[in-house]
Every structure is written in C-alpha cells, then in structure tokens.
Design a protein around this nucleic acid. Structure first.
Lengths: 185, 185
DNA sequence: GGTAAATAGTTAAGGCCCTAACTATATTTT
DNA sequence: AAAATATAGTTAGGGCCTTAACTATTTACC
C-alpha cells in the first residue's frame, strides 16, 4: 500500500520485457537475446510509426492502404495499373485489392477500366478528383515523414535504412532455404 | 513485343519506388530522401518479418496477437493480468482485448477471473492447457527468430536495435510537441 | 457524504486483411 | 485443335483492429 509511483505504460512494457528475457533466456536453449531484441524493437517501432501516419492520413478520410494505392495510381497516370500488380506492390492479396478499389471507386477517386489486350485484367485509374486529393495531402505527408525522423541525423538514417534492408534480405533468404526437398502437393 | 525478361515482384517494387522518389523529390519541397527511405524500409521489413512469424505461429492455431497475449499471461502466472493492462502491453484497444480473450477462452487456453479488490476489473489467467501449448511453441519460435536474423552479426543487431529505439523516441517526441497551445475541444 | 469525473470492461458497427472457392480468359501441353 | 494448367478478378466467410456508446464501479472533489 505504498503511494504507488504511477507507472507509465512504457515503464510497464519495459519491466515486462526485461522479465521475459531473463526467464526465457535461461529456459530455452535457442533463445538469442540480440535477435529477440531486434525483432521486438522492429515491431514496436513500426507500430508506433504506422499508427502516427495512419492518423494523419485518416484526417483526409483515407486509410494508409488507400493512400498508398492512390500513390501507385498517381505514378501510373492515364495508363492505369492492373489490379494484380497493385497487390504485388502493396504486398497484399488480390482479394484485398478488390475491396480497396471498390471503396476508392465509391468515393470517386479511382475508376476501373477494361484492358484491351487481355480481357481477364481490369485496370485501376486515378480520377481527377483523386489526383487533387492526393496533391492536397502530399506536402503535409512529406513534412510529417521528415518530422518523425528528425531525431536521427542523416548518417543514422542511412545506417538504419541499410540495416533494415539487410534484415529483410536475411528474412527472405532464410525463408527460401526451407523445405529443400520433398515437395508433395 | 520483346521476349519479356520476366520481372519479379521485388524488381517492380524497386522500379516503382525509384520512380516515385525521383518525381516527388523534385515536386515537393518537404520531401526528404533519407527520411522517406527509412520509413519505406521500416514498413517493408516489418511486413515481411511479421508475415513470416504469423505463418509459423499460425500452424499452431494461434494468431500473433493471441500468442503474444499468452506470453504475457504466462509471465503473470496464477495471479493473472487485468485486461486493460494487457491492452497497454500489446498496444491495442480494450475492445480488442475483450475479443482476443473471448477467443482464447473458447479454446480453453485462458480463463477470466474476478478481482476481489476492484470489482470493475477482470483478470485473465492462463490455463494448464494454455501453458502446455505455449511451451510446445516456444522452442521453435525462438529458433525461428534466430534464423530470421542470421544475416546480421551481433554488432549489426545491436546497432539496429539502438537505431530503432532512437527512431521510436523520435516519433514519440515529435508527437508530444504537436499543438503546443490553443487546445479547442 | 454526495455528486462529478475517471476507469474497466463490453457491445456494435465498420475497415483492412486473409484464405478458399468460383468464373472467365489465356497459355501450355499433347 | 482439345485438354490441362495458369492467371485475373470477385465473392464469401472469418480474424484482428478501430472508435463510439453503454454499464458498472471506483475515486476525487466540494
């Protein structure tokens, strides 16, 4: 029943993780502290950053995904972009793209067009309204990105970028080595 | 109609981003290449990593969130953990915790207990079944974390951890400075 | 001590994301 | 050329996550 120092959530998180690391470090032979710390921090930092950006974009009535989709279409211009290609660029499933394009179409920001050369494909194209909206968002967005990173100098940013890239390649490389033989339907 | 070099999705992403960076770098005054690159890579790397881990955990019938919730309760032991505290540790809303605990309760991995001291709070407690499941997952999970990071040496891991922490603080700091005055409803 | 404000949890409605199954069209194989 | 396979998109169903509104309880204030 002491006065209770009024812990913040961040404190609680740190205590929790410290405890867990200590216990599991002893209990599990495969526990590797540097790896655990990297991935814990990756998730935590991404979460904080994405939430912050999503809120900013949300003020304009868009989700982060919709915003990124508009960015892709903005680059494609009047040619548009096949839906499956959007999925590859955004790293999400085709089914999800159908839904995202539906919702942007309802808002008049995007339109679907048939592709003449391949009748299976439909192309999404940004509308004039969509371009206008995007251009109204971008200056503030790029300012926000800059502010978010303002605690790191340029050398640190470059270093972080390179280490993230290296980690990503490590993930992808270690994935490809799974199941080296025995592929059975 | 050339033979078509059969681009991979990764290639397409790189071409797309290079293009965008070139165009927006010229068009928007606030565009800051190092910041953009850091955040692009943060999102991409997190996505790849989380997807990989979610698939591994999914083979045991759990989502990443459920798994992390079980980890928290495992540390709390027989005392259990109040639902709102779980939310703070996982960085998700209270409403979401209700749903996660519901689903784990249906699977018999967790139980809800009343708190004697404060009748508002309910405490979640891991069951024996839950502990058994968790212990069957953890060795493989820690091995997976280690493999994922195997492309980085320990110095690089430590450096990445520190830079991610610094970026996170930068995000949180620049957030607190918003709206320094004039709070209106 | 009684009211106002804060806190814990739930419910409801909606968005994003997934996989699996389905339709339509193209491509490859034989 | 016909059959088998692959690809593009959609639909259906479900999981995780959010905010807003609601109930119950506790704490703070006057």
């Amino acid at each position: 029943m002491t006065p209770k120092p009024k812990q913040t959530a961040t404190d609680k998180r740190e205590i929790y993780y410290r405890d867990r690391v200590r216990q599991h470090g002893q209990r599990y032979r495969q526990f590797h502290l540097p790896s655990v710390e990297v991935l814990l921090n990756l998730a935590y930092t991404y979460n904080v950053t994405a939430t912050r950006l999503a809120r900013a974009i949300g003020k304009h009535g868009l989700s982060l995904s919709s915003f990124n989709l508009l960015m892709i279409l903005s680059r494609s211009g009047s040619e548009g972009c096949p839906l499956h290609e959007i999925g590859e660029l955004l790293l999400v499933s085709r089914a999800n793209i159908t839904g995202l394009v539906d919702s942007l179409e309802r808002k008049g920001l995007v339109e679907r067009v048939a592709d003449k050369r391949d009748r299976r494909v439909r192309v999404a194209r940004i509308t004039r309204t969509g371009e206008t909206l995007l251009e109204s968002i971008l200056p503030g967005h790029y300012l926000e990105l800059r502010k978010i990173c303002s605690g790191l100098n340029n050398a640190e940013k470059a270093s972080l970028r390179d280490l993230l890239t290296k980690l990503r390649h490590s993930v992808q490389f270690s994935q490809n080595k799974k199941r080296p033989r025995k592929s059975k339907k």
